[in-house]
């Protein structure tokens, strides 16, 4: 079924032992690019609507809202090697909002983890691009998610593992605001503060819409900043589509010591496609062929 040898699916002790052979501890192969990030964002948005359109199902809204966050991470912040997904020194990126898998698939493909042509297989039988992120299927995916609220716990565990081994890599977890309805998110938030994991940065893609409506109507989360602050987190609030603000926040987060940082990124659901923006319908609906054509025109 799998076309690739997915490094991260190896069991831990195995990957540790084998890390000497397939993985390389030098910085050779670390991803870097001087490309204009705004252009990359536009390209990723095209990838996202195209793959979801071709799949005929998927979640465009929450993928499009996270584009600037994901691009800044993969292009400017994360230390990662597309040719060696299990590189031990890599920064860990945890996608907790697993339904936004298309934004990660687009980023991983653009970075070279697998050929871009694979994006056309999204959600199709035997594809390694599953409907929700799956660590056993896709090179570069750290966690299997899709059932909401589980990623921050995983990220706390990853951060603790790094700290136990005195590693300098950092853990980033991308959450949706809707999944902050889940109690586990707050169990994890409390424990991150209690354990003082300062090698962890959470980013909440606060696009203010969840499956059946606006978050303020479904289950109000505000004031979200005060909730995290009261639990002992360092909170940064930004415009999640302003590339400079996103980069500044991510860089600042890495310097905060003694407590975890959360970046509350105010975003627009469906950002970049006029008829998807702030439209609840496009939380989990694919564009039809005409809509796809229109979307690609807008993103040209």
């Amino acid at each position: 079924m799998l076309l690739y040898n997915v490094g991260v699916t190896m069991m831990p002790s195995e990957s540790k032992k084998q890390s000497k052979t397939p993985t390389d501890n030098s910085n050779v192969g670390v991803f870097s690019s001087d490309e204009d990030l705004a252009a990359v964002c536009k390209r990723l948005r095209r990838d996202i609507v195209t793959m979801i359109g071709k799949a005929g199902s998927g979640h465009p809204g929450g993928s499009l809202s996270a584009v600037e966050i994901v691009v800044t991470l993969y292009w400017k912040v994360l230390h990662h090697k597309p040719a060696d997904p299990a590189w031990p020194d890599r920064d860990r990126f945890i996608l907790s909002k697993g339904h936004a898998a298309p934004v990660i698939y687009a980023a991983l493909a653009e970075c070279g983890y697998f050929p871009k042509s694979e994006l056309d297989t999204l959600r199709k039988i035997d594809s390694h691009l599953q409907g929700h992120a799956d660590r056993t299927s896709t090179p570069g995916v750290e966690m299997s998610s899709g059932s909401l609220g589980q990623g921050l716990s995983f990220a706390v565990g990853a951060a603790l593992a790094g700290r136990l081994d005195s590693q300098s890599w950092h853990v980033y977890a991308l959450l949706s605001d809707g999944e902050c309805d889940e109690g586990q998110t707050w169990e994890a938030a409390m424990s991150a503060a209690m354990f003082k994991v300062d090698n962890l940065t959470a980013i909440v893609d606060k696009n203010s819409i969840q499956l059946s409506g606006f978050t303020k109507d479904i289950m109000n989360l505000d004031p979200l900043n005060k909730k995290f602050e009261s639990l002992g987190w360092h909170v940064i609030e930004i415009d999640g589509h302003d590339l400079k603000q996103v980069l500044d926040a991510l860089e600042r987060a890495r310097t905060v010591k003694g407590r975890p940082t959360v970046i509350i990124a105010h975003t627009v659901k469906g950002k970049g496609v006029s008829f998807m923006e702030n439209n609840v319908d496009f939380h989990g609906k694919a564009p039809n062929p005409e809509q796809l054509e229109q979307a690609l025109k807008e993103l040209a």
Binding site: E142, S153, A155, G157, L164, Q184, A188, S191
Partner: peptide, 19 residues
């Protein structure tokens, strides 16, 4: 603490990173 869901999730993050 009394938070089994978080306990399992943290265990996963540890296991995925060699523990």
């Amino acid at each position: 603490g009394i938070a089994e869901q978080n306990m399992v999730g943290i265990a996963c993050g540890l296991a995925a990173n060699g523990k």
